[in-house]
Structures are given as structure tokens and as C-alpha cells.
Design a binder for these strands. Structure first.
Lengths: 305, 305
DNA sequence: TTCATGCATCAGTCCTCTTGATCCATAGAG
DNA sequence: CTCTATGGATCAAGAGGACTGATGCATGAA
């Protein structure tokens, strides 16, 4: 209780309202307090300052000289505080901070965010990328795009898209072996990061669970972009998310030899703290995904994509 | 508790300190709170604003963008509030508001206040006169000079001077009857306000309780100055406080024919609310009276004057 | 006179605020 | 790499402050 005694801010706030209305009762109405409470607070302030602030005359009150001198500056002070809070909230509402993996950011968000910004010209977007799973309490972010199962305690998550993958390579490389027609053809080429579990999953799905793959332990975290670059350069076959490389396919830099795609159970999700669900910018972003992605919020098992 | 919920001012104050120190613990020390209390208040504010203000990282905290935007303006707001209170108190301490009867103000205070102001150049004096007994809760005043018995509930009173009186008249008028040598000589002249009870008291004290005086009921409240003016103009004999007319005596405009003075039990007192006893300006004023008036604070029965 | 208005006072209640203990994560020292 | 110090979060408990409703008082208006 010490704080309120050192400097009775609430009493000062009540005083400010009373000074404006020149009425305890009216000030109480403005503040949602009873006249009794107002009287109490004013008295408290007067005792703290050791100055009489109001002259209580029957049926009306007047400011003393001290009170009259105090009131305008107090009003100014509270105005600044109020506007500070308002502006802060306004600005905060007007900036959307997105954390995403580098891959998703560069291959999907970067390409579609323009639509969001056209639809929401008042919202500024800040896009941050990081491979690590961010902690909303330690990092400044309104939302994040994460890969996982969609289960994170305390966070609300919406399904964004499946995280499927399939081998991709440059058409020139395919030509060196007369084209890729069978999954096993791939083994004639250099496999980029053959230790990636996705390879085993894919070959298994293709009916070749025993395909001879080196089982190096290297994790592919964060390297999909590098692998893609290597594949485009013709250094080998990479296992990639085809969605993300449609441009490269269209430009003839990559081909997807098989329709077969695989999944490992983890997908892309939009996540944010449960409590912020209702902010305008979040609603706007959800609406944007809804409009742009047919699969949005439909769960990993319902959508086709 | 409603006020603090609508807009948690104390939490804002805590936030301000934390933002300056970038430390919950240090802010707590500044405010005289524990780290726990600071943590609680910050959390409260964040929940109210629905904005994270600090990023809690191990062994240090950072302001979020929202927090960084909020902090400087909040500091400014509190600075203004603090300076408002300080200035108000400074000004209030620097102004002494005296309420006095018109008579005492014009005949004693006006003549001696110069000394007080020389001794206390930092204190501005505002002198208000009124016949009515003022109510400190309804009128703005630091102290008052009152006539009475010295007993007022809730007020501290110091004896200032006896309220004695004696007949006074113009020397020219005295000459018209060959000088005033015996109290009964006065009856040869016009008595100004013969209904004034002071006349009866004085004649009784002079050994003539049966002096023939008209017993008009008119009260002399506030009219001493008028009576004096009439006496100076030679219109008759007035019963006055000799102290207040020493100048007129010195200038030959009035004479006090008899040394005998009377009292009616009421005297001049300095009064002020008990609670304000220790303010600097009140101490200064008491010291001034002490220095200037031998009778000050000695009680009506001890002093000679 | 009687009524209406507006503040002060009082006693009681609710719940905010604060504390102290404890836990946890990390940076830095050795 | 282990150990220690630092700094914040969490928890339960308790004190005391803020608020309410009823009542009283003084005054201006009808």
C-alpha cells in the first residue's frame, strides 16, 4: 500500500475531475464512483498536501488559490498520460510483427503479403525470420508461423498448409540420365543431404523402403533454401516443398518429376497468444490467410493442398 | 476499487520507474516496493493495456516497441504532475493570507506589516478584511485576527492585545467647553453613539454608573472608523481604542482626556487552524508579532498594554 | 415552511496490494 | 563444465486502503 501513500495518484485524478466539474457528485459520475468516495479522495489529497484545495460552501464548492493553481497542470499531466497510452495502443495496433521461418517467409509470405497490405493500408508489417521457435514472452511478435503439430500450450494455432515434400532437381541434371521416370532413377544422381529423414519417408511411400541412402546424421534445419539453390545449380536432387518452388518450376530451373508427395506429420501453423485473439490486426491477418489459402484453418486432414 | 481498475495509475507509475531503470528490482528500490510488487504491477498494466511492455530475458529486461513508445511520454506526464504539486506547494507556502477586522487592519497591521515583509521577503501577504468571523473551512485564509475571548474550537489562538477603550475627541471641541477635566464634562458635548455599551462601562469605571446616556440599541459593529472620523471632525465624543489613534493624537487631531481605559472582556487574538501550526509562514508571522508586540501571547491579564 | 441539493461523516465490507518464501533460468567465474 | 550470483515469476497469506450505503447537516428555492 505504500505507493498510493507516497503520492496519491488516484486522489489526484479525482481532484482533477472535481476541479473540472466543480462538483463532487458530478466528478463521481464521470469516474464511476460515489460522491462519498470522491469526498474521501479529495480529503486524502488535501491531507497529503497539507493544503485545502476546495472551499466547501453550501450547495457549491470553489477552488482555493492553491487548488486553482494546481488544477490546470494536473489536467495537463493526465492528458499527456492518457494520450501516451492511446497513442501507444494505436501504434501497437497499427504494427503487425510476424515471425516466420526463413523458408516460409521468402517463398510464401514475401509473395503474398502485398495483398494483405493492399487490403490493410493502415497496418504496417514487420517481418522477422528465425529458425528457432520463438517464445512470445521473450520476443516481440504478434504472431508466428511455425512448423509442428499444432499443439502449443497457451497458444492459439490455425492450420496454414501441409508440409509435404517431394524430390526436385534441375531439368538439365535430369537430362544427363535421359530423364527421370522412376523413383530409382534418382539414385543415379547425387542426393543432396541423403541423411534427411524425408528421403527415407518419400522412398518408402514410393514403394522402395530399402533404397540405399547414406544415413548421415546432419539435420537439415534451415537449409532448405541452400538445398534448393544447389538443386537449381544442378548439383544434385533435393527433397523440397514443391509449393515453394513453383516459380522455379515455371521458369524451367527446377522440375518435380513425381506427383507423389510425402508428409512427416508436422505442418505449417499460424500461432499467437490466446489472449490476443481479438485484436484488429490479428483478425485482419486471419482474414487474409482465409482469403488467400484455401486450406487455412481446415486442419491437416481436410484440405487437399 | 473501481478507479484503479479503469486506469491503473499506480501501475503506470511503476512502469515508468521500471522503464527508466530497466530493472524490476531497482525500480522497486526507488519506489519503496519489493520486486514482487513491481512484477505484479507491471503485469497488471500489461493485462489492462493488452500489450506486452517488457521482454523478460534472463538477467535483463528490454522494452518492447510499445513500451519504448509509451515510456517517454509517461515520464513526461508524471514530471508535469510532480512539478504541478511542487509548484503549488511552493506558491502556497509563499503566500500568507490574513483575515482581519477592518479596524485592526487599517490601524495596526497596515502600519506594522512593512516590518514583517522586510523580515520575510519571500512571503507575499494578502490582507483581507471583513467584519464577520470567518470560517476557515469556507474561506481561504491562513490566519485571522479576531476579537473575542480566545476560545474557538479547533483553532489555536494567541493573545495579541487588549481591546480597551476610552473617550476621545478633537481638541477644538474640548476647547469649546474650556477643556475636559472631569468625566462629567463629556456630557456637555454630543456623545457619538451613546447606545454603545462601552460608554456605560467606561462611566461606571469612572465612578459615574448613573451617567445619563441614551440607550439606543444601535450596534457599533464595524463603525469604529466612522466614529473616529466624526470625532476628528469635531462632531462629538467617541469611545475608541486609543492605541489605534496615536497618530491622530500626535497630529493634534484627537485628544484622550483621561488615562482611564476600560475593557469588556473581549480582546484581539491571532487564530488559525490547529493543524497548520507548523507551516513556515505561520511561524514567521508569530515571530513577527512576538517581536513587535510586547503583549503577544502573554494572555489578557499579564501584559500592561 | 417544506423540499431539494450537495457535501461530510461513519461503520462495515471487499479486494487490491504487498510481502516473504520459493522456484527457475542464465551469465559469469573458476 | 560446474558452481554461484543475479533477476524475474509464482504462490499463498494478510493488512489495510478504497468504496459503499445510510445518515446528517446546511442552505437555497418554491
Amino acid at each position: 500500500m505504500k505507493l498510493s501513500r507516497q503520492f496519491p495518484l488516484n486522489a489526484l485524478r479525482v481532484f482533477e475531475a472535481v476541479a473540472r466539474h466543480l462538483s463532487f457528485t458530478k466528478a463521481g459520475e464521470e469516474l464511476g464512483l460515489t460522491q462519498t468516495a470522491v469526498s474521501y479522495q479529495v480529503k486524502l489529497l488535501e491531507e497529503t498536501l497539507k493544503e485545502t484545495l476546495f472551499l466547501r460552501q453550501p450547495r457549491k464548492i470553489l477552488l482555493t488559490e492553491a487548488g486553482a493553481r494546481l488544477a490546470p497542470k494536473v489536467t495537463e499531466g493526465f492528458d499527456i498520460l492518457a494520450s501516451a497510452v492511446n497513442e501507444m495502443q494505436g501504434v501497437a495496433e497499427g504494427t503487425l510483427i510476424i515471425h516466420s521461418t526463413h523458408t516460409f517467409a521468402s517463398h510464401w509470405l514475401a509473395r503474398h503479403l502485398g495483398i494483405f497490405q493492399l487490403d490493410n493500408p493502415t497496418i504496417a508489417v514487420r517481418l522477422e525470420t528465425s529458425q528457432a521457435v520463438i517464445d512470445f514472452s521473450k520476443t516481440e511478435a504478434d504472431l508466428a508461423i511455425r512448423v509442428g503439430t499444432g499443439e502449443w500450450p497457451g497458444l492459439k494455432s490455425h492450420f496454414v498448409m501441409r508440409n509435404h515434400f517431394t524430390p526436385m532437381l534441375s531439368p538439365k541434371l535430369a537430362d544427363t540420365i535421359g530423364g527421370v521416370h522412376d523413383p530409382l532413377d534418382l539414385l543415379k544422381l547425387k542426393i543432396i543431404d541423403p541423411g534427411d529423414p524425408w528421403w527415407r519417408l518419400w522412398f518408402t511411400a514410393a514403394g522402395h523402403p530399402d533404397a540405399p541412402l547414406e544415413s548421415a546424421s546432419r539435420n537439415r534445419l534451415g537449409s532448405q533454401a541452400v538445398e534448393a539453390a544447389a538443386a537449381i545449380a544442378g548439383h544434385g536432387v533435393a527433397i523440397l516443398r514443391p509449393d515453394f518452388y513453383q516459380d522455379d518450376v515455371a521458369m524451367g530451373r527446377l522440375i518435380q518429376p513425381f506427383d507423389l508427395t510425402c508428409e512427416d506429420g508436422s505442418h505449417y501453423w499460424l500461432v499467437y497468444p490466446e489472449a490476443r485473439r481479438q485484436t484488429a490486426k490479428l483478425r485482419a491477418f486471419r482474414a487474409f490467410l482465409q482469403k488467400t489459402l484455401p486450406s487455412f484453418d481446415k486442419g491437416p486432414d481436410s484440405g487437399i493442398m
